[in-house]
Each structure stands twice: as C-alpha cells, then as structure tokens.
C-alpha cells in the first residue's frame, strides 16, 4: 500500500492544536471547555438578584 499519497490542495487550515504529553486538543475545543468552566464558576459566585419577597 502506498504510504503517503499527496494531499488534495484544499485542506482547511489547521485549527491550531495544543500538544501536552499525550494530550492533543484543538484550540476551538479548549475555548469551549474553558468558557464552560468560567461560566460555571461565575454562576456560583455572582450574586443572584433577590429584591422580590
């Protein structure tokens, strides 16, 4: 079997990947995960309006 046939010309640009040991995460996925954690922490610490009895 041919080991590495040429790639087609129009492959989308690499999204950017963070390699850390065996971990390999795409930058868009990291943004999503970090955003979720930040929102979670904010949900715990930001005061909830309680003006009505």
């Amino acid at each position: 079997m041919v080991s590495s046939p040429p790639l087609p010309p129009a492959i989308p640009l690499d999204a950017g990947f963070v390699h850390w040991g065996f971990v390999n995460l795409s930058v868009p996925n990291i943004i999503v995960i970090v955003a979720m954690l930040v929102v979670f922490v904010l949900a715990l610490v930001v005061p909830f309006p309680q003006d009505r009895p």
Partner: peptide, 8 residues
C-alpha cells in the same frame, strides 16, 4: 432557590 446555577 436563589443562584445563577439554577438557570442552566
């Protein structure tokens, strides 16, 4: 029931 965590 008074926290933003309840809106998710």
């Amino acid at each position: 029931v008074a926290s933003w965590i309840y809106v998710f």
